[in-house]
């Protein structure tokens, strides 16, 4: 089986999306799947690169989109790539039926805030003749660092969900419901996440030596 991991975050390999997606890719490789990886915004820089990536989509058995929630939806870069894939709809459809799976995380605590983005990916799959394998969605993405072991509980729920999903997808099955539920489980109480987040913005401002107050209004009238 050939799989393609598409990272939809503009932060590329420095992103939480890559952290999650590459862990799933490792799990797929452990089950004998050949996995290619691509950072979508880098492949949009020329028609040639985009064309090559679309060819890779055509020749894959499984495509995994890993992205952060931007304004309740997919980042614009990923939306543009999907538009281009539909522009070549015949090729995608006629080359067989690659299946599409999704990993999405948002910066709010509630995983259900990702539902519209998952729905959009599903409609894309249905529009292009791709099979729909399901989605893992989580909130509190702002707490994902570079190391799962630093997460509350060592990130066990996330890692278990990714392992389960890798095994299932490698066996040509869908994302298991148990994995969806584990992945969506809150990493910490909501009050703690929001308090830590609010403090985090201040700390980043200090690191960046921001000269304006956090609530500055550059476009205010009068």
């Amino acid at each position: 089986m050939n799989a393609l991991l598409l990272i939809g975050s503009p932060k590329g390999k420095k992103s939480a999306s890559y952290m999650l997606g590459s862990k799933l890719a490792d799990g797929l490789r452990d089950h004998g799947v050949t996995v290619h990886e691509a950072i979508v915004h880098q492949e949009l820089r020329s028609e040639e690169k985009t064309g090559r990536l679309l060819d890779l989509v055509d020749s894959s058995d499984l495509v995994v989109l890993a992205f952060p929630l931007y304004v309740d939806s997919l980042p614009a870069q990923l939306t543009r790539f999907l538009e281009q894939a539909v522009g070549r709809g015949d090729r995608v459809t006629h080359a067989g039926r690659p299946r599409l799976a999704v990993i999405v995380q948002c910066g709010f605590p509630e995983a259900h805030q990702c539902d519209t983005a998952v729905g959009i990916c599903r409609r894309f799959a249905e529009s292009t003749g791709l099979g729909w394998a399901g989605a893992l969605a989580m909130g509190m993405g702002g707490s994902l660092g570079e190391d799962f072991r630093k997460l509350p509980g060592g990130g066990k729920n996330i890692l278990d969900a990714l392992h389960m999903t890798a095994k299932s997808l490698a066996g040509e099955c869908d994302v298991p419901d148990e994995a969806k539920s584990l992945f969506a489980r809150q990493l910490m109480p909501r009050w703690l996440y929001t308090m830590g987040g609010n403090l985090g913005w201040r700390l980043q401002m200090r690191e960046n030596k921001a000269k304006r107050p956090i609530g500055y209004r550059p476009y205010a009238q009068g």
Partner: peptide, 16 residues
């Protein structure tokens, strides 16, 4: 241009 996800508009030049 597309957003780069840097959060500079919140933590470097708030509001812009």
């Amino acid at each position: 241009a597309m957003c780069t996800g840097c959060f500079g508009c919140w933590t470097r030049t708030p509001g812009e």
